[in-house]
């Protein structure tokens, strides 16, 4: 099974998903991420899915779960770089990822986190 690398940048964690997501990989990512967030005391998590071309309902739901989990651990999560086809698929599946923050690319994701943390110190 492939593991998704979790990179640390200041008090942010950057998760760049470069592989095709299967259920096991996503579940492993969820567990790894929870541990790293706690261990490093991260305040923000950016999940970059710009290389992901295919999502299913499980992956979509897991993204929401991961974001929710990060919030519980006092870290803001942002999903960045979602491709149009992926966005359309998720909407057609009825998943609008209510509580998840999104940004067009990594740069805007970082800016969004700065903005959010500026507003809520």
């Amino acid at each position: 099974m492939e593991r998704v690398p979790i990179l640390k940048l200041g008090d942010l964690l950057i998760v760049s998903i470069q592989v095709d997501l299967d259920d096991q990989t996503v579940l492993a990512l969820k567990e790894d991420l929870a541990e790293v967030v706690v261990a490093r005391g991260a305040r923000g998590v950016i999940i970059d899915i710009s290389a992901v071309e295919i999502v299913d309902s499980f992956t979509g739901r897991m993204l929401a779960t991961i974001a929710e989990m990060c919030r519980m651990l006092d870290a803001h999560a942002v999903v960045v770089g979602m491709r149009p086809a992926v966005a359309i698929t998720l909407v057609e599946l009825g998943l609008s990822l209510g509580g998840v923050r999104t940004a067009l690319n990594l740069e805007k994701g970082v800016a969004l986190l700065d903005h959010v943390r500026g507003a809520v110190p």
Partner: peptide, 12 residues
């Protein structure tokens, strides 16, 4: 509505 939600998912 679908269009708006899809755009939101992408961060717009």
């Amino acid at each position: 509505l679908k269009t708006v939600f899809a755009a939101r998912l992408m961060g717009a």
